[in-house]
């Protein structure tokens, strides 16, 4: 489903973010990527969304090279990949409802579909009561749930979560991980990057360890090990 083929990224100042990374992710997998800050985890995810261009190698989503897509195809691809960030990246001028609705509008969904699906996806992340609040009126955990709801609402094939619990307390961290597990259980591929040992150990799923831009371990049912 996702294939990184000998991908390298070297920035103009000479710093190396990725070195010859080859990686395959199958449909419905739950993959955790761990590693110290600067190991190349986020760069790897950015490559998948074509936010970064590789210096060498190719990134495939299904059969398409993501860096060879035209603008419209790129938008289509991004609608198939739901993205959750550590800093939530909600649109501050829009309510919870509008933040999620925007993603559906961008995908060309009708008003009826939006009115039906937004409350439903908010129920899934247990945030129905905050539907008309603005992001600044929410706690960190609530913001991250909105971000997950936004990533899920178009029923993506893949959910990419880049350190989604980095700013959260243990209780909220636990809740978010449970939501990610539920999402994976219903058939969505999940790619998670994290520093949290507890999360990795409790998941018992595939773990990829990165160091200095390289993959140094890839275990089918791994534990946190750096």
């Amino acid at each position: 489903m996702i294939f990184f083929d000998r991908v390298s990224k070297v920035y103009p100042d000479g710093s190396v973010a990725l070195q010859n990374v080859t990686l395959t992710i199958e449909p419905k997998e739950f993959v955790s990527i761990v590693g110290q800050s600067g190991a190349g985890k986020t760069t790897l995810l950015k490559m998948l969304l074509a936010e970064e261009i590789p210096t060498d190698g190719q990134v495939f989503f299904e059969s398409s090279d993501v860096h060879d897509l035209g603008k419209n195809e790129m938008n289509e691809l991004r609608r198939k990949i739901g993205m959750v960030f550590q800093d939530y990246r909600l649109i501050s001028g829009k309510t919870v409802y509008e933040n999620i609705a925007f993603t559906m509008e961008a995908a060309g969904k009708t008003d009826e579909e939006i009115e039906q699906d937004v409350p439903h996806v908010l129920e899934l992340v247990d945030l129905s009561s905050k539907i008309w609040n603005f992001p600044k009126e929410l706690s960190g955990g609530e913001k991250q749930r909105v971000a997950i709801a936004r990533a899920l609402v178009n029923q993506p094939d893949v959910l990419v979560a880049d350190e989604p619990t980095g700013n959260l307390d243990p209780v909220n961290t636990y809740d978010i991980v449970q939501i990610l597990k539920r999402i994976n259980d219903i058939g969505t591929t999940v790619i998670l990057t994290t520093h949290n040992k507890g999360i990795i150990d409790s998941l018992g799923k595939r773990v990829i360890v990165m160091e200095k831009g390289k993959i140094i371990r890839d275990d089918k049912q791994g534990k946190y090990f750096i």
């Binding site: 938008n75 691809l77 991004r78 909600l90 925007f102 993603t103 961008a106 995908a107």
Partner: peptide, 10 residues
């Protein structure tokens, strides 16, 4: 940039 990443057109 977020709008871009959720697949909104230009």
């Amino acid at each position: 940039s977020v709008m871009r990443l959720v697949g909104a057109s230009t």
